[in-house]
Simulated assay, not measured.
Amino acid sequence: MSGRELWADGRLRVAWTSRDWPTIIRRYRALAGISQAAFGELVGMDQGRVSRLESGRARVTSEDVVARFSEGLAVPIELGGPMQQRSSEEWGPPAELRERIAHAHYRGRMDLRTADWISRVLAEHRRAEDEIGGRELWPIVRSQVDTVTALVPHASGDVADRLMLLAAEHAHWLSWVAWQEGRRGPALAWIDLAHGWAVDAGQDDMASWAQRVRAHYSLRLGDPMRALRTAQGARHGGAQALSPAAEAAAVHQAAMAAAACSERDLARRLADESLELALRVPDEGDRPGWLYWLDPLRARLQAADTAYVCRDWAAAAAQFSDALPELTRFPRDHAHYRARFEDARARV
C-alpha cells in the first residue's frame, strides 16, 4: 500500500488533524506494515525517538519536525494545516460554492485518478463517522468540498457530472453531520446543495437520497405530512428509474412518515415494499456508495422500526430480537434499535 493510499484511512486523517502523534505513528506503521526504525527513516529520526513519541513519553513541539512528518509521510495537501476551530457561520456552505459549479460544462481536462481518490477517501469517512462521529472529520470533508468544486470547471461531460456527484455526496455528508450537531440551518442548506448538484448532474439516485434525507429532517421537526410528501417525491421525482436500493430508502422513509400520520395500513404496505426492494441488492457493490450500509440485516431492522412506529409491539419485538445480535458495527444505530426493542418488548 502506497503512502497516498494510507491516507484514505479515516482514523489516520483524524489523528493528523488533531496532532495526536502516538496515534499517527502507531496507525501509520500498522497500515504500512513497517517497524519503528523504518518509520524513523521516513521522517529523519532514530528508532529511540520514534518509540518515545509513539508511547507518549516525548512530544512534537517543533514546526520543523511537523514539516518532516508531513513530507516523509506524504500527507495529502488538504491535511497540510492544523485543524482550526470553526465558528457557527463556518458550518454552512459559502456562497461561492454555488458559483463555482454554476457553469461547469466547458472544455477542460481533469485526472480521473483524482476523482477516484476523493471518492475512496469519502467512503472511508462515511465508515469512520459511524463509529467515531463526524465532528472531528468535519474540517477534512469540508476542505474536500473545496477541492472537488474547484475541479469541476476544468472538466466536461461525463467527468464533470461525476465530480458534481462527488460534490453532492460530500454536501450530503456535511448536512448529516451538521444535523447531528444540532446545526439545523446549515444542515438544510447543505442538503439543498446536494440535491441541486445531483439534479444538475443527472444523478437521480443521489437526488432521491437528498430528498429522502430532507423528509427525515421534516419528520424529526414534527411535520409528518410534509415528510410523507417529500419522501413520495423522492421515489417518483426523477427522470429515470431509481436503483432498487435508492428506491428502498425512499419507500422506507415514506413508511415512517405514513405511520406518524396515523396511516398505519399504508405504512405497513410501504415497509413490506421497502424490504423487498432492499433484498434485491444484498451485495454492497450493487448499491450506491452512500447506501453501503443497506444490507439485508439493516433492511430487516428498518422493517422492525416501521412495525415499532406502527405500534405493532409483538412484531417489532420479534423482528428486533432476530436481527439485533447480528448488528456488530454501527454502535449508535445499535443503541437506537436496542432501546426500541426493549420498549416494544415491555409493551407486549
Rank of each mutant, 00 (worst) to 15 (best):
S87W: 12
H252Q: 10
A307G: 01
A128F: 13
G237F: 03
R26F: 04
L301V: 00
D343W: 08
A167D: 08
R269I: 07
F69V: 04
L275W: 13
I132K: 13
R13C: 00
A307W: 01
E181V: 09
P296I: 02
S321R: 14
A194K: 05
T328D: 09
E71I: 13
S321L: 11
W21R: 00
G202P: 03
G238A: 05
R268K: 13
S70F: 11
E136D: 15
V159T: 10
Y292H: 04
W16H: 00
S62A: 09
S218Q: 14
S208F: 09
L294F: 02
G44K: 05
R107N: 09
E129P: 10
G157W: 02
I77S: 15
W209Q: 15
R183E: 15
R52F: 09
F39L: 03
L219K: 06
W209K: 15
R287E: 01
R98Y: 13
Q319T: 09
R57H: 12
R107Q: 10
A339V: 07
E90T: 08
C261R: 11
R184A: 15
A255T: 05
L166P: 02
V159W: 05
G81D: 15
H236P: 07
R109T: 12
Q47D: 06
S2V: 05
Q36N: 10
D322S: 09
R29S: 03
G185W: 15
A307Q: 00
H105C: 08
R300S: 05
S208W: 07
Y106W: 15
R98T: 12
R27E: 02
G56P: 02
D146N: 14
A346W: 04
D205F: 05
L301A: 00
A318H: 08
A128Q: 13
A37P: 04
P331M: 04
W173I: 03
L166N: 08
A259V: 10
L31F: 05
D116A: 15
D130V: 08
A171Y: 12
R268S: 12
R86S: 15
I101F: 08
R340T: 05
R109H: 14
D111L: 07
G238S: 01
H252S: 10
A168G: 09
P139R: 06
R142S: 14
V348T: 14
V141E: 07
A241H: 14
Q240F: 12
R332Q: 11
I24K: 00
A178F: 08
D20F: 03
W7Y: 01
D205I: 04
E90H: 10
L277T: 04
P93V: 02
P325H: 02
G202S: 05
L151A: 07
L112W: 12
E273H: 12
C310A: 03
A307T: 00
P282L: 08
